[in-house]
Design a protein around this nucleic acid. Structure first.
Lengths: 104, 104
DNA sequence: ACTTTGTATAAGAAAATAACTATATTATGA
DNA sequence: TCATAATATAGTTATTTTCTTATACAAAGT
């Protein structure tokens, strides 16, 4: 009862696929990296990540719709942070896998 | 010189995104799960994963093109296995994140 | 009230994905 | 050689994604 735990359940596959799709875009992955430790306003994300304000806003909206990012208003600004802890773990894993010295 | 290791390099982002895109489809994720421990012929993958032969073949081809899966001929059959070790790690991570008891 | 700053939304075009059907290819076995 | 099994490819169509431009909305400052 512990080893058939292999993403075999349709439900798990769907959840995992949804998360992967959300991350599987360079801008969205960068956004998630930027939000890994900080809560940031949209324009700050635009600065760090690049692309246009509109484009980043749309990508943030995608992440929001998928319940991956959440945001709150602070006066003029909208502060964004990662909502789904699982995503944080995945981002960390991506770093562990893709940012190690064995890339050399 | 060790903490700016945050997927900040464009090159890492691209690699990570490529891997994520490859995994971000239910059939392909299932294929990778099926190949996690075994080297399997295409029809066996079709059986385990579902969908049509043609469809699975095309998805396998996508994974091959992206250097994630490799295959060799054994007589009549084409045996497939995961080529990129990084992908194996990611699949394991996905399982760790999405197949734990805290789903309850 | 007007302007500026920060953010979101709409509309549309271009490109990428995905799936299906049918057919081709390759190897084996009779 | 003919039939069959295993896999790949072609051609199409439908859907989804992505980006751009322009515009709307909201809050704050003057």
């Amino acid at each position: 009862m512990s080893d058939m735990t292999l993403l075999e359940k349709e439900e798990d596959i769907e959840k995992a696929t949804k998360a992967l799709k959300a991350m599987a875009h360079p801008l969205r992955l960068k956004i998630l990296c930027a939000l890994k430790n900080d809560e940031l306003p949209v324009l700050e994300i635009v600065k760090q990540v690049g692309s246009s304000q509109s484009n980043i806003s749309q990508h943030i909206d995608i992440l929001r719709t998928k319940e991956i990012v959440e945001s709150r208003r602070d006066g003029n600004k909208i502060l964004c942070k990662v909502k789904d802890v699982k995503i944080l773990k995945l981002v960390e894993n991506m770093q562990a896998v893709f940012c190690t010295a064995d890339d050399l």
